[in-house]
Structure formats: structure tokens, C-alpha cells
Write a protein that binds this DNA or RNA. Structure first.
Lengths: 213, 213
DNA sequence: GGAAGATGTGAGTAAAAGCTCACATTATTT
DNA sequence: AAATAATGTGAGCTTTTACTCACATCTTCC
């Protein structure tokens, strides 16, 4: 347990051979987690599936948690980069276009690896897994807050932080649910339309403005 | 609940003494699950905390899963009854009032026992825990579908099943997130206002109606 | 070629978890 | 009171899991 080692790996691979070993371990762990969940992903099974010995696994990951965490870090990073890219792309587009693009980005994010995403989000062994996911949500909320501030004139009066919080969680949950329960919705444009409508209805000025602060 | 629970409990308690034992076991399990999560809730610990022997636990619950499932069933039933009651109460109220009442009901549901709710929703040991939760979501969606059909004239043209699906998941996630990350939001009316706005913006006719099919 | 370090191996260990069973105690019935 | 049924007990069995360690094998570089 060296706190100075951010990636939680025991040894840093110095040769290509060992880098491939680490890669094989991560890939195998991801496959088992996806298909059979957290319980089934025992370190021994991961090692067998990766085609390496259990000893090799423990050469690079001091414990099971660090292995799952490494996977989660990588996954989180991918998602965040995709979101950042999309937000940058739409900076000057009309509001409706932006909203759809953001929703589409969320869908894309989840379609990359829905099963793994689900497992990582729901691990909850103590506080470990949750913290990283919360960090991702916070990062997404920060991107969205920035966007809302930039578009202030097109929106009803609102608290950007609060609205970003509401939207991140709503869209995240909708995408999750759609991926898991109605994947066919995601093939066409129905889902993006519906989610966009919800977001725009929430953000735009409307006859309901006597409700707000 | 009703003692007719053939698949869950191994034996049906016939004396008050054993009914109390079962109650103690369920209560202890709930407390441990709430405070320390699924992993920490070992059958032995539950038995100790309940003040009964491990043998007694296995007299009424054939395995750990059935114990958690019994807790989940009870919790689900409570939630469903509360929701049904609220839906019945608001049958004739104006739309805005209804929406707020429904959101408030969701908040109330989660405030009864937020930690337990969270754990039960996220258990995911295979498919067991998920099925019950899905059933609850489906029941909630059915109630909402019925409501949307009854209020057709006040709403934009929409697919009641689809809209109910979207709303159930959005509101569920928002309430979860609020309970866990911003409990202070729930003290005032801010959260209910915001969520209601989102829902009404989604359901009502608006300038965006060229979007939909 | 060979020393030194990096990498790989897998049988084995210790701990922990789920669960059983032979028996003890308490309640109900006859 | 005795018989029967219901309920309660907990030491310990079985299985599984994370993890170690003594050793073997590759890579690098002189």
C-alpha cells in the first residue's frame, strides 16, 4: 500500500513482455466482470483467463481491489475524454443541437461497454469503487455547468450547478435504463428525441416560470 | 407480512416466539446492510446481531439470498403501497399538483430508509436482486402510464408507456442522487420544484412540438 | 558468454464464508 | 404427566478465496 503510487500497481512493467501481461490481465478481468459480475471475477479465474499465472497477477496488482480500480480508472478516463471532446465540438451550435449531441454522447459512452459500465458503477465494496464514479459524475456536471453558464441568455433563470446536477443524474439514469431494458430504443432516434425534449423542457423559458425562484 | 411465503422461508413460524426470531433476523440484516453493505452482512454476523444462533437463521431462511430477498420483498411492498395510495389521492387534482405529489411521494419513499434502499437496488448478485427491483419499477411505470392516459387532454401527444418509462427512471435517479449527495435539497422545496419542472416540461405541449413524431 | 535484473510459475496457505447436524430447550396437545 | 411438535443452539465441516513464496525462465547489457 504505497500511497505515492497512483495507479496502485506493484511493479511498473519495464519490458514489452510484461506490459502485455498486464494488458492480458486487465482484458480478462473486464471480460469476466462483464459477463459474470464482480463475484465471479476471482483473481485465480482472471489469471487463468488471461493465460498467466496467479503469481504474475500479484506481481502487478497488490490485491483484487487495485485490479478493479485500474479497470475503472481506465474506463472513467475514456468516458471523460469522449465527453470533453463532444462538448468542445458543439461550443457554437444552436441549443437544440447541443442538447442532442450531449445525449448522443452519453448514449455512445454507454454503448462502448454497457455491461462493464454497469458492474463498475454498482460495485460498492466499501467506498472504493464509488469514489471514482462520483468523480466522473462531478466532472460531467462541471462540463455541463460551464455550458449552462455560457448559454445563460437562451435559458430560463436557473442555478447552473443545481441544474447540471439534475441533468447529469437524469440523463445518466435514462441511458442506463435504456441500455439495459430497452436497447432497441437506442437504435433509432426515439431515445435521443425523448431525452432531449426532457432536457429542453427543463432548461427553456416556459409558461411555468412562476414556479422557479 | 403474510405468512404465506412458500419459496422464501424454509419453515413458517407457528408460535409467537419464532415470529419474533424471524423479525429479529430481518431487522439485524437490515441494520448491517444499511451500515456496512452486502459483503459485511454475513449470515453469522446477522445471527449474532439478531441475538439468535446461526442454526435458527437457517431454520427460516434456506440461504443468504433468500434472507436478502425477503427484506427486499418487504421493502418493495411498502414502497408500492405508498405509491398506490398517493396516486389514488390525487386522481382529481390539477396536473401541477399531481406531479408535485408524485415527486414528493418518491422523496418520501426514499427517506424512509435510504441506505437500505440503495443497497437493495445495487446488490446485483447474479440476477436475483435485480428482478424484484425491476418489478417495482414496472409497477410504478404502470401506475404512471395509467395516469398519463387519464390526463391525455392536458398533455402533448405522447406514448404513455414510453413516457412513463422515461419519467420513472429519471425521477428515481434524481431522488437517489439527492438523498445520497445533497440531502439538504430535500429539506426545502427546491428539489420537488426542480424535478416537477423537468417532468412538466417533458409532458406539456410546448414550442418544441415539431420535434416529436 | 554470463551476470544481473526482470518476469513468470503454480502448489500451497490461511482466513473466511455459507451452511449442516446432532442435540437441547421450550411450547402445545393429549 | 407424558408425548409430540416446534423452536433454538453452536461447534465444526466444506468450499472458496485472496494471496505468498521459493524457484524457474527469459532479457538486457557488459
Amino acid at each position: 500500500m504505497s500511497p505515492s503510487n497512483p495507479s496502485q500497481t506493484r511493479k511498473t512493467p519495464r519490458q514489452r513482455r510484461s506490459a502485455e501481461t498486464v494488458e492480458a490481465i486487465l482484458t480478462a478481468a473486464a471480460h469476466i466482470l462483464e459477463k459474470e459480475g464482480f463475484e465471479a471475477a476471482t483473481t485465480n479465474r482472471v489469471a487463468v483467463k488471461a493465460g498467466v499465472s496467479i503469481g504474475s497477477l500479484y506481481q502487478y496488482f497488490p490485491n483484487k481491489e487495485s485490479l478493479v480500480r485500474a479497470l475503472n480508472d481506465r474506463h472513467t478516463q475514456e468516458i471523460l475524454e469522449l465527453l470533453q471532446r463532444r462538448f468542445a465540438e458543439i461550443r457554437d451550435a444552436p441549443l437544440e443541437v447541443c442538447v442532442r449531441a450531449i445525449v448522443q454522447a452519453m448514449v455512445d459512452v454507454h454503448r462502448v461497454n454497457p455491461a462493464l459500465h454497469r458492474v463498475l458503477v454498482n460495485i460498492v465494496p466499501g467506498i472504493g469503487g464509488l469514489a471514482e464514479t462520483k468523480a466522473l459524475e462531478d466532472a460531467a456536471a462541471a462540463l455541463l455547468t460551464q455550458f449552462l453558464k455560457a448559454r445563460k441568455t437562451e435559458l430560463r433563470p436557473l442555478d447552473p450547478e443545481l441544474s447540471a446536477f439534475m441533468l447529469v443524474h437524469a440523463v445518466e439514469a435514462l441511458t442506463h435504463a435504456a441500455v439495459l431494458e430497452h436497447p432497441e430504443l437506442l437504435k433509432g432516434e426515439t431515445f435521443v428525441e425523448e431525452a432531449s425534449r426532457m432536457i429542453l423542457g427543463y432548461l427553456r423559458p416556459s409558461a411555468l416560470d412562476h414556479l422557479g425562484t
